[in-house]
Write a protein that binds this DNA or RNA. Structure first.
Length: 550
DNA sequence: AAAAAGGACTCAG
DNA sequence: CTGAGTCCTTTTT
């Protein structure tokens, strides 16, 4: 229960998650089972816009027996002597350290919290960046003993060479669970190691944010700790104590504002039973999350018009958008921006927003975290204007065509459009250009008709596999182009090779792109272990290998 | 015919 | 150097 295990064993890295770990679980698109390759234009059913937290929370934290893995079980499954049993890590420290790690990378944490966060940063950062050691992160199990290793992050300083190559898979045939991710690393270079570390970091961060979001939703707390009443604080405190096996503090029954004004020492003094430091760190993390969110929200409000103006600068034919979509755009921006990051297995492949910012920090996760249900959304003042409700309604109440137009337009407004809009030169040189590109779901979305703003192309390096992942994770728009066959397995089918190639060509500004060339690039991924053909070879079906299928 | 596979080369970042 | 993009031939579906 509630374990997050990342164990690098020899040349295989195994990330064991306690339960169902579909971080960005998207409902399968309503698609035909028809394998006809010529069904390029078939319509897909109505899709619900999902956000990364939705559906995942319960699945992730449910007591799913099939997915529950205790440290003991994990140890049992591992070949003896192949790994070191590692101490457990309380989530409080995990969260803090992960946030700190991200801060170290991005320098984006507010300075007021650094003194709190840095306490564990060095250990964790060292663990993640030192390729010579194995990393084991185990979030404290609720029933495990607590205390001695409280509030510490630990890494198993076991040289990876002590484990026999391939030990895990060799000794555990058929025992690999769905929630394990084995990453063959025998051919991994240092560069790839770094990339994989980023992937693991992402996974950890996703887990952390999900946990915070779940707790917030469960307790019905305002996101702003400043707004907590004593009752709220007590509820939160109680939850933290349960979560981290802390003795309930008796002298901390006070409102959020007061709690926030207290130092770590104050906490420790008022919680002589122990755990004051953990509670303090958690509260600071909570506050940091809210502050960041508020700050971003303000920025969004301030920048919304600016971005529209900027967009119109890039293409003055399309500056008439957004009057009606502004609220929706903002809502979708929250959703989509979060989702945008969510689907990135590695920050290395992150898209660049129109501001050129990379969403790489815990702050960004937190900034974008969404309540997992509408009721919570109303409760949580992190969603002003009931933005989340708007998002929900888009997918469930509005007409499909409208939804798609709004979503497409708002995603573009948010600067996170998967596809770049055509440049003027392309429009002039290619009459059909984007006008029919956006018809794949049976809904014509003419940029000029809908006022979809034109955006500059993504400036960063875009990898094909990542691009495809983006399309896959936006089935609402692209399921007629490429769709998941088996989300868990990572298999996907290119429904329209022609359209996919065109999309890719647009993204890369390669007018001559075709499926032959695209598929050549896909095949290059075989030897890199990113994509392969599934065991049962089918035309136009490929498979993301772990962890790229996450 | 389209897709798949892969060699060889070029190119941009 | 890497990750495509391009062109090509051969094989498979």
């Amino acid at each position: 229960m509630d374990t997050l295990n990342t164990t690098v064993i020899g040349t295989h890295a195994t990330l064991s998650l306690n339960s169902y770990h579909r971080w960005n679980a998207l409902s399968p698109s309503l698609i035909s089972e028809n394998d006809d390759d010529n069904n390029e234009m078939k319509a897909c059913g109505p899709m619900k816009i999902e956000h990364p937290f939705e559906n995942d929370d319960q699945a992730y934290f449910s007591n799913n027996s099939a997915g529950t893995t205790s440290a003991e079980q994990l140890q049992r499954r591992q070949p003896s002597g192949s790994t070191t049993v590692v101490p457990t890590i309380p989530l409080a420290s995990c969260a803090t350290a992960a946030a700190s790690l991200s801060s170290a990378f991005n320098k984006r944490l507010v300075s007021s919290n650094r003194n709190v966060l840095l306490a564990n940063e060095r250990q964790f950062h060292r663990g993640l960046t030192d390729n010579s050691i194995s990393i084991s992160l185990i979030k404290t199990e609720r029933n495990s003993q607590s205390g001695e290793d409280s509030n510490c992050y630990s890494t198993a300083t076991q040289p990876s060479t002590t484990a026999p190559i391939g030990a895990t898979t060799a000794e555990l045939p058929g025992d690999r669970r769905d929630d394990e991710i084995s990453v063959p690393t025998s051919s991994v270079t240092n560069t790839n190691d770094a990339a994989q570390m980023d992937i693991y970091r992402d996974l950890i961060l996703r887990h952390l944010i999900q946990d915070i979001n779940t707790t917030c939703t469960k307790l019905g707390l305002p996101t702003d700790p400043q707004a907590w009443s004593a009752e709220h604080s007590a509820r939160w405190m109680s939850e933290m104590c349960v979560q981290f096996q802390l003795p309930p503090p008796r002298q901390l029954y006070m409102n959020g504002r007061t709690l926030l004004s207290m130092t770590q020492d104050d906490f420790m003094v008022r919680a002589p039973e122990g755990g004051g430091d953990t509670l303090h760190a958690q509260l600071q993390l909570w506050k940091t999350a809210y502050d960041s969110y508020s700050q971003q929200n303000n920025n969004n409000n301030n920048n919304n018009n600016n971005s529209i103006n900027n967009n119109s600068n890039s293409n003055n034919n399309n500056n008439n958008n957004s009057g009606n979509n502004q609220n929706t755009s903002q809502a979708t921006q929250n959703c989509s921006r979060s989702s945008q990051y969510w689907i990135n297995p590695s920050p290395l492949a992150l898209n660049v927003t129109e501001q050129g910012e990379l969403l790489t920090s815990a702050q960004d996760y937190l900034n974008n975290f969404n309540p997992s249900n509408t009721e919570a959304a109303i409760n949580m003042n992190c969603y002003p204007n009931n933005a989340y409700q708007n998002v929900s309604q888009e997918g469930t109440l509005l007409g499909n065509a409208t939804v798609q137009q709004q979503y497409y337009a708002s995603a573009q407004v948010a600067g996170i459009g998967i596809l770049p809009s055509p440049s003027d030169s392309e429009i002039s040189s290619n009459g059909s250009s984007m006008n029919d590109v956006n018809t794949i779901d049976g809904t014509v979305i003419d940029a000029r008709q809908t006022g979809t703003p034109q955006f500059p192309r993504h400036s960063g390096t875009v990898h094909l596999w990542h691009f495809i992942r983006e399309l896959l994770d936006h089935p609402k728009q692209y399921s007629s182009c490429v769709r998941w066959v088996d989300r868990q397995e990572g298999t996907f089918k290119i429904e329209s090779s022609h359209h996919l190639a065109r999309f890719w060509g647009q993204r890369k500004n390669r007018a001559q792109m075709n499926y032959d060339k695209l598929s050549r690039s896909l095949r290059q991924y075989y030897k890199k272990g990113i994509i392969q053909k599934p065991e049962k070879k089918q035309r136009l079906v490929y498979k993301f290998l772990p962890p790229y299928n996450l």
